[in-house]
Design a protein around this nucleic acid. Structure first.
Lengths: 232, 232
DNA sequence: AAGTGGTCTAGACCACGTA
DNA sequence: ACGTGGTCTAGACCACTTA
């Protein structure tokens, strides 16, 4: 314990060690921030910052007046980065390619309406496209766009410009929801992704809103072997 | 602009609106924190807090001396909660059940060693178990435990006690990694999960460490239809 | 009603990276 | 070298919640 400055990360580490070592077991109450600040010889706000991080990470639970307790059932909280596909491909050293498959205006299936929080059926723009890595199919996306919220999309030449990238640059969202699941490739999907019908594929469904107005809902199906990793 | 107190979340919202409205477009440089603080009539540290959040969320990019810029390619950063399975089942209103399938000590396949960061092959404890919801198979887990890092696991009656819950309570980790992918059910997996061979299933692989010492690596395969959702 | 976490402020200094 | 973000401190007040 040198008497130099301690960052809140150091303080977080100290407290984390108390938990790891069993000095404070799951369910135990930790001292008040102010007391910890005295013990560790730092400002209370530094302890507060450390505690907030431990709380965000699911290690402790904090309540006003109730104090801080070590969580009984730590929740694993994973953070995933979902970059735009072009960047993902290029970061892996691949050559990115994009291909428009279809563009229509139609009433989407119930599941899509539900995902976007729409109650009444209405026509939406549907864009199907394929992302390629080194010329090989990488991700097949089936996108529905609300043309009321994002009318500008209608002026874009989607055979040249990528719908996702256009939206991300011109229609920032305030809220989003992501869903992961596995599905068996049907004949069409298999053909487009150069897979075999029945192959298990990872599907990523993303829906974005500006406040309560849905912008787009897209289901991306990845080619066989695709994995998603949490940040370090 | 009422002259009441503003929280850093309010400030974050104000700056976010600047970006949404196009006042600052992707690639643009934002004013220095200090100037924003003057404009919004708050302390610089409040702006700093807001900016840190916007940076964590992937909206802006900050560099010392370089200033703050709106990101060109916003990264979608999703946070997932992965609770212990008992809690997940009970939160969904189901009756949780647990069943030990097998427990052996053997040398794991290369992939498992690699996931744990082990270079030399060595024997690990392997525990296979089934989690049930209302008596129906829910998740099949195939776990490898490093008995050097977590020797206590050998004293546990794993037919009664859940390996995951024991580890989570007695062996807190300092670091972890999560991986998601899809796989086709093989005959054995299908039988254990009451699925059909070939069904697409979601696999979640989690590895935990204390510092650099691996604790456990577990691959959980969920029954058909399982989905993972991001937090709000 | 009182105690605890949550946040703000103002000022200071540090550390990093760019110009 | 210097400007910008990053963080700490000390003190103050607020807000929630439970004793």
């Amino acid at each position: 314990m040198p008497d130099g400055r301690q960052s809140w990360k150091d303080v977080r580490e100290r407290i984390h060690e108390w938990i790891l070592s069993g000095r404070y077991a799951p369910g135990d109450k930790l001292p008040r921030d102010a007391d910890i600040a005295v013990e560790l010889a730092c400002a209370r706000s530094t302890v507060q910052r450390a505690m907030q991080d431990l709380s965000d990470s699911g290690f402790v639970e904090r309540r006003r007046k109730g104090g801080t307790r070590v969580r009984q059932d730590p929740v694993v909280r994973a953070t995933l980065d979902i970059p735009i596909t072009r960047r993902e491909v290029e970061d892996r050293g691949g050559q990115y390619g994009y291909q428009l498959i279809g563009k229509t205006t139609q009433i989407p299936p119930r599941a899509v309406l539900a995902a976007m929080g729409l109650t009444a059926p209405r026509k939406l723009l549907r864009v199907e496209a394929l992302h390629l890595s080194d010329g090989r199919p990488y991700i097949l996306e089936d996108r529905w766009v609300c043309t009321t919220t994002a009318p500008g999309i209608l002026d874009i030449d989607l055979s040249r410009e990528n719908a996702n990238e256009w939206l991300v640059r011109h229609k920032p969202y305030t809220r989003f929801q992501v869903k992961f699941y596995a599905l068996n490739a049907d004949d069409r999907t298999a053909e487009l992704l150069s897979a075999t019908p029945g192959d298990a594929l990872l599907a990523i469904e993303r829906t974005t809103w500006i406040d309560d107005a849905p912008i787009t809902s897209v289901t991306s199906v990845a080619a066989p072997g695709y994995q998603i990793l949490s940040r370090s």
